[in-house]
């Protein structure tokens, strides 16, 4: 891990996208920024702009309306990047799984690197998920893991 890799590990900027959550997970994600958890300790910043972001945190289910938005945001993030799906809904659709408009979890729409289960997951779990995503991103950038972009595209669409 060279200087670049260290810098990458120390400065993951986060884009948080609420696909269709009940806001429980979102509150926990925001809680990570508070003095109690303070993710900025790890250089993490909540950046609302995919062009600046390294890690995409997705909460909530994907549905017919927001799948396109999620894909667009993911596409606008420059490489290397990683995706964390947070909470039951983002993993599988959760309690909304059977709804007429719900496509399910995030995985069918964009490739996911880290799954953080829970309804809602604790901030500690979210932070750990983000840290794991940074490791995945590192491995991918250093060529150990091939990008997984094509494997799950448009499965549900």
């Amino acid at each position: 891990m060279g200087i670049l890799g260290k810098a990458r590990a120390k400065s993951p900027w986060i884009l948080h996208f609420d696909a269709g959550a009940c806001n429980g997970c979102d509150i926990e994600v925001i809680a990570c920024l508070t003095p109690v958890y303070d993710v900025e300790r790890f250089g993490m910043m909540n950046i609302g702009n995919p062009k600046h972001a390294d890690i995409l945190l997705v909460t909530g289910t994907c549905n017919l309306r927001n799948a396109r938005v999620l894909k667009n945001l993911y596409a606008q993030m420059p490489e290397p990047k990683a995706v964390v799906a947070i909470g039951a809904c983002a993993l599988s659709g959760g309690v909304f799984h059977e709804c007429y408009n719900v496509l399910g979890g995030v995985e069918g729409i964009i490739p996911v690197d880290v799954w953080v289960p829970g309804c809602a997951p604790k901030p500690e779990a979210i932070i750990e998920g983000a840290v794991m995503a940074v490791q995945r991103m590192q491995e991918r950038a250093s060529g150990k893991v091939q990008p997984s972009e094509d494997e799950s595209e448009d499965e549900h669409a």
Binding site: F17, N49, P50, K51, R68, V69, L70, K71, N72, L73, A75, Q76, P78
Partner: peptide, 15 residues
């Protein structure tokens, strides 16, 4: 360098 569209909150009609 990859050309990219402008940021429109992900709501642009295509990527």
């Amino acid at each position: 360098t990859q050309r990219t569209g402008v940021y429109l909150c992900g709501e642009q009609v295509e990527t």
